[in-house]
């Protein structure tokens, strides 16, 4: 209920602002909705949205799985931490634009280059978060598992993984928001489709309604995925915690 009210407030503010600024710079909501419907009925909206979502999914899965594995290793093995740390600092501070441009130069304007570039941008934050999580693992529970001779996989699944779950959820959440941002840049610079490409075209034509139509649809999709996928996962991972009254 409160969410709806907050959304209505946003629409109202937008509408009023549009009246003051004028339709060319900030079109009112109905104008944007019109473009959305037109693009949706032609199928272009879904095509571009689908292309972007596919890239996000691939890059996200790649970066999360690789990043989690590297982070866990660095948290457990001192040598891996020492070897990996300089690379981590480099990657963390490398601007996304540099990675994307270099990827396109070295690997060509290909799908693989785009996905790799997005994944590389997200990778270091996942590594850092999972490394912290691994360092914070409860040693006394490891000892318990070892005394009771739990097989490795069972101990990992029931002792280690639940402790890492909040960190994985945090990495997924911050990583997803990062990927949402970077994917559009990568598309703008070197893909012939996707929301980022469309926004680039709209920018060149100064077509604000079109720009807003794509941005807002994209934002809506992000919101839906966050509430339907990420938040339930977080809730599930922490369901054993006694709830606050």
């Amino acid at each position: 209920m409160l969410r709806l009210l907050s959304f209505a407030l946003f629409l109202a503010t937008w509408w009023i602002a549009a009246l003051f600024v004028g339709g060319a710079k900030l079109p009112p909501p109905p104008a944007v909705l019109e473009v959305m419907i037109a693009e949706a009925s032609s199928g272009a909206l879904f095509l571009h949205l689908g292309a972007t979502l596919a890239r996000v999914t691939l890059a996200f899965v790649l970066a999360m799985s690789l990043g989690s594995a590297i982070g866990y290793l660095m948290g457990r093995v001192r040598l891996a931490d020492k070897l990996g740390d300089p690379w981590l600092i480099l990657l963390l501070n490398l601007p996304a634009l540099v990675v994307i441009v270099l990827a396109y130069i070295w690997a060509g304007l290909t799908e693989a280059a785009a996905i790799a570039a997005i994944a590389i941008n997200k990778l270091p934050t996942a590594v850092v978060t999972l490394r912290e999580g691994t360092r914070a693992l409860d040693r006394s529970l490891d000892e318990m598992a070892s005394v009771f001779a739990m097989p490795r996989w069972r101990a990992f699944r029931h002792v280690v993984l639940p402790q890492l779950a909040p960190y994985i959820a945090a990495a997924a959440r911050s990583g997803l928001s990062l990927v949402w941002k970077i994917v559009l840049v990568a598309e703008l610079l070197g893909r012939p489709n996707g929301v980022g490409f469309e926004i680039g075209v709209a920018f060149q034509l100064f077509d604000t309604p079109r720009l807003l139509a794509y941005s807002l649809t994209f934002a809506a999709v992000v919101l839906v995925i966050e509430t339907l996928l990420v938040q339930p996962f977080e809730a599930r991972a922490t369901r054993w915690r006694p709830r606050a009254a």
Binding site: L141, V159, P162, W240, R241
Partner: peptide
Amino acid sequence: EPRLLPWR
């Protein structure tokens, strides 16, 4: 200390 798994 009991050392139980809080999530199980």
